[in-house]
Design a protein around this nucleic acid. Structure first.
Length: 661
DNA sequence: CCTCTTGTG
DNA sequence: AGATGCACAAGAGGC
């Protein structure tokens, strides 16, 4: 109970968001934090009076570790099976609430053929969920009690489905991300290993693994308690160790503005999901399958024999060993490379590569999208609910998984048809709002480039203006190819360009690409200065910063190995731009989540795709929503950062995601 | 489980 | 001399 002691001794009682502080991380606290987990010390709470007693202690403590267990891997539609709370090292409880009793379990186990691991004969007495949750709700929503959990977005989502607005919250994973983004993984297992120096009970000990794995609700409460209480215990211990470092490293504002608000915002988006038309998907699937079969048989004819067209190994053998086509190259494992750029070159000499390219495009679209997205529709909601990872990228971007809705095709005609299957509910529209050229604008700002800033201020075509600066060609009537060259250079600059990479991208000689780059830096010397300054900073500190202060550690930037170091330097150049764009859209998301209800709109935010937000709204609201999204998103950097270039957001409504673009 | 390939910003 | 644009997730083949 050292947290209680610390608060009791300290002048400030825990009050509002951000004012909770763990005990100082010196002396005995660290000892206690790092002491071994004593799983036998965890208590299983099976009656209301015992729960009330612990709740009273938690209310007084001001900070409580929490871990919530449910009967599914996806929080959407899942029910709470048990809750663990912790008030200090080894001072944790587990409250079984939805564990199946022996009869139920036996049936399920029989179906699974193998018992997980000596299941208890009976789940034992449990407080009814509809009695426990009302008792817990005041604690879970108490403004004066911080709820701390690893990956707390999961807990937020589950409690939201049970009518509880969990908060205020802290998440050691997100604290770690603010402190060490780019350095290490931030999952529970890695964090506990790194900071507490000992391992966690594996989930497999509770529910088994592989074919014999069972739902958490079928696990024995004793095993569940050892696992779950330990998670709550570990989360609180990590918090006590990591939270003080935020202030020491001056990363508290980053954490509080860019990380802490996100779990609630994302949980709501994930819960909304997006509607997908399964009929349209299956029609597309059938269409693709038919055309693939055609390409396949044509490919066999051209190859002179049948082979597995989906096997790069077999394709390489056909192209280079049997047909003896020239221009092959090997991958680092020694196999023939058959990627698209190789096949495109070979297509000039032989008809087979083109057939394979066509087949591959359809195969990718079919297996990754038209087939998989249909499977991803949640039967309970009829919608697709992606999951966003908050601490998985090095730059501060989100990532999307199960399914990934951040890589839905848009560039090709075939691919765009998949976006037509993302639809609004009847009487509603989808609204897509995206930042225009946000990373180039940020480059113009951070590198302080007068011509680029002026171009953005004037609202002119930035690639055309770049081309005009470089090649002395007037923007009016500029040939497409010249603008394309400038566009490739602009993107290359953001990524820490090399002559080789630009040459490959434009299909020109390396010398010519090198000349372009030289010319670019002559026209925009500030960009070269910015890049050099960024590399120097990264070499000296091991990290770079966004304009909002987010710290991005860059592995390899201090390496003696030139290749590693150069890779680090390119990351160091890109990260402040990509990272700042990620910061901006995070701020926009938090504000949109507040602004929608405040504006009296019933619109919901559904998706984030790095520079784009997708909403769903009644058709009558669409126009107001577009205006609101533009206003809120364009102002998102303020007041923390004032950009010297305008941000512009394009917002459009449509019946499908494709139509909203 | 790793490699290759390809979809997005 | 040799490698050489940033950030991701996912499916399929093959060991």
């Amino acid at each position: 109970m050292e947290i209680v002691a610390a608060y009791a001794a300290g002048a400030a009682a825990p009050s509002a968001l951000g004012d909770h502080s763990p005990a100082p991380s010196n002396g005995p606290v660290v000892d206690e934090v790092e002491t071994a987990f004593q799983r036998e010390a965890y208590k299983i709470v099976r009656d209301l009076p015992a729960l009330e007693t612990y709740i009273a202690r938690a209310m007084a403590a001001g900070a409580v570790g929490i871990d919530t267990e449910a009967d599914g891997i996806n929080a959407v539609g899942a029910s709470i099976v048990g809750i663990a709370l912790s008030l200090g090292a080894n001072d944790a409880i587990y409250i079984p609430l939805g564990h199946a009793s022996a009869d139920t379990r036996a049936g399920e186990l029989f179906a699974a053929e193998q018992p997980p691991a000596e299941a208890a004969p009976d789940a034992g007495p449990q407080i009814p969920l509809n009695a426990a949750l009302p008792a817990l709700k005041p604690l879970l929503e108490a403004q004066g009690v911080l709820k701390i959990g690893m990956n707390i977005k999961w807990d937020v989502a589950l409690f939201a489905q049970h009518g509880i607005a969990l908060g205020p919250i802290d998440d050691p994973m997100l604290i770690s991300y603010a402190l060490y983004g780019g350095l290490d993984a931030h999952d529970k297992t890695s964090l506990v290993e790194k900071h507490l120096g000992h391992g966690l009970t594996p989930l497999a000990d509770v529910v088994g693994k592989g074919k014999a794995q069972i739902g958490f609700e079928l696990a024995a409460p004793e095993r569940a308690a050892a696992y779950s209480a330990e998670q709550a215990d570990a989360g609180l211990r990590l918090w006590r160790k990591l939270k003080p470092a935020l202030a020491q490293e001056k990363l508290r504002t980053v954490y509080e503005t860019l990380e802490r608000p996100m779990p609630a915002v994302l949980a709501a988006m994930e819960r909304e999901g997006i509607r997908i038309d399964p009929l349209m998907l299956s029609q597309l699937s059938g269409d693709f399958a038919q055309r693939m079969a055609q390409y396949e048989s044509e490919a066999y004819g051209l190859a002179g024999r049948e082979f597995n067209i989906g096997s790069p190994k077999q394709l390489g053998e056909i192209l280079f060993d049997e047909l003896k086509l020239q221009g092959g190259s090997k991958t680092k494992t020694g196999a023939w490379s058959t990627d698209a750029s190789i096949l495109e070159t070979l297509a000039e000499e032989h008809n087979l590569p083109a057939k394979v390219l066509e087949w591959r495009q359809l195969s990718k679209l079919r297996s990754t999208y038209t087939e998989a997205l249909g499977q991803a529709i949640n039967p309970k909601t009829g919608r697709v609910h992606t999951s966003y990872a908050l601490a998985s990228t090095t730059t501060g971007r989100l990532s999307s998984n199960d399914p990934n809705l951040q890589n839905i095709p848009i560039r090709t005609e075939e691919g765009r048809r998949i976006r037509e299957a993302f639809i609004a509910e009847k009487g509603n529209l989808l609204v897509s709002a995206d930042y225009s050229q946000i990373e180039l604008r940020l480059l113009a700002h951070v590198a302080d480039i007068p011509q680029l800033k002026q171009a953005f201020a004037d609202g002119v075509d930035i690639h055309a203006r770049t081309a005009s600066e470089m090649f002395g060609v007037p923007v009016e009537g500029m040939p497409k190819e010249i603008r394309n060259n400038a566009k490739a250079i602009n993107f290359g600059i953001i990524y820490g360009i090399s002559a080789f990479g630009l040459a490959r991208n434009l299909g020109i000689e390396r010398e010519e690409a090198g000349a372009y780059i030289k010319k670019y830096f002559e026209r925009f010397p500030g960009i070269r200065d910015y890049m050099e300054a960024t590399k120097t900073f990264a070499r000296a500190n091991g990290y770079v910063k966004t304009i909002f202060g987010r710290r991005i550690w860059v592995k390899g930037v201090q390496s003696k190995n030139a290749q590693e170091r150069q890779f680090g330097e390119r990351q160091a150049i890109n990260a402040p731009l990509q990272g700042a764009a990620a910061d901006i859209i995070r701020r926009a998301m938090v504000r949109m989540a507040e602004a929608l209800p405040a504006s009296g709109l019933s619109a919901r935010m559904l998706l984030q795709v790095h520079d784009e937000l997708v909403f769903e709204a009644p058709a009558a609201e669409a126009e107001a929503l577009c205006a609101l999204a533009r206003r809120v998103m364009e102002a998102a950097p303020l007041p923390a950062a004032s950009l010297s270039v305008p941000l512009t957001v394009e917002a459009k409504a449509g019946a499908t995601w494709g139509a909203a673009h």
